[in-house]
Design a protein around this nucleic acid. Structure first.
Lengths: 188, 188
DNA sequence: AGCCTCATGTAAAAAGTTACATGATTGG
DNA sequence: CCAATCATGTAACTTTTTACATGAGGCT
């Protein structure tokens, strides 16, 4: 039910088309909320007919026209209401943990390769986050720059730090997993 | 699509009824795969009619009879096949991160209470994990006990260690979040 | 000519959530 | 007597996933 709200936040940060949103959901927002373009277009349509968002047809040269969505007053209200509701416990779907426990009834050693590959994915994601942090949250306009602190920036940064902490924790755990799997493989 | 496999793993670890599975999904397995009893009963029915699992009616005294499910050969094959497929990237749904970024367009200070409550939930979960670790993975039958190392135990333990690492990371991050929110609140 | 990116969708199937429903026994 | 636990389900609805579909323009 919160894809609506994830889209609203993204549109508040910057108005955009369904296509652009879909791309954002492959990067920044996508790291803590996944959605495909089919979902996005459907939700956009519903939110538009509910008056939560406004559309503006933007003609473009050299590429198809697009519909740029932005958040309307009703959408802001809906988001605000949602923000004031209790945080719900995350619903987890952790394939790898199931596979690890399942490996006891199959071949634990066979998982090693896959876990190594998986580890690489997370390593790349960490690098990506760290590069983003340097790009967006260091330098002249950061920290103690003149003027009021930008709440949006600070909040985006703390979410990014969460992503970084998550990836580091995951990498350390995957090393633990690999050591355990290798231990089981060499014990026989 | 992997609820099937999560149930198969749980039934391999110990056969049980739909009700018992539902309870397990509130505890151990539930920490990395959520499911309600409605889902579970439906999947059990399907897997039974597909010959993946066997049923045995167990009459009980003082309580309703139950159907005890156990994994059949076909189910084992299906699980094995799944285990050999590539690990899929987790699909994340992280309400709190969306709310934090959304707070930039509302009142960041209003989130503080909720994050504190949320932190408590994770703190309790960490305690619960740690107690489980002491109960199940220390003591006489642990580590260098005589006999072959029990692969199942080791693998369950490494998954639990993942849960512990996750909770610790989350608690540290939530402290970071709280500090950030408080900083924004006092800055005005 | 063929593939990639931009851009927007429809349709069907699978999975997940929420509400409703029943009934026995045990403990306070 | 009332609430909780054990035990199993049905029905309706919402959400998510997967597959299909189209079309223009730029790049090699």
């Amino acid at each position: 039910m919160a894809l609506d709200h994830a889209i609203l936040v993204s549109l508040l940060e910057r108005p955009g088309s369904g296509y652009e949103l879909a791309r954002r959901f492959e990067r920044s927002i996508g790291y803590f909320w996944t959605a495909t373009h089919q979902q996005i277009y459907r939700v956009l349509k519903r939110m538009e007919s509910d008056g939560w968002i406004d559309v503006r047809e933007v003609p473009q040269q050299g590429r198809p026209d697009k519909k740029e969505y932005s958040v309307a007053a009703l959408g802001r209200t809906a988001l605000s209401e949602w923000l004031h509701q209790p945080i719900e416990p995350e619903s987890v779907r952790h394939d790898l943990a199931v596979k690890i426990r399942g490996a006891a009834f199959d071949d634990p050693a066979a998982l090693i390769r896959e876990v190594e590959r998986y580890r690489q994915v997370h390593n790349e994601r960490l690098d990506h986050y760290l590069a983003g942090e340097v790009r967006d949250f260091t330098g002249p306009q950061a920290a103690h720059a003149p003027g009021p602190p930008d709440a949006g920036r600070e909040l985006q940064h703390v979410v990014l730090r969460g992503g970084i902490a998550y990836e580091r924790m995951t990498l350390a755990w995957l090393d633990d997993v690999l050591a355990t799997l290798r231990g089981l493989a060499s014990d026989r």
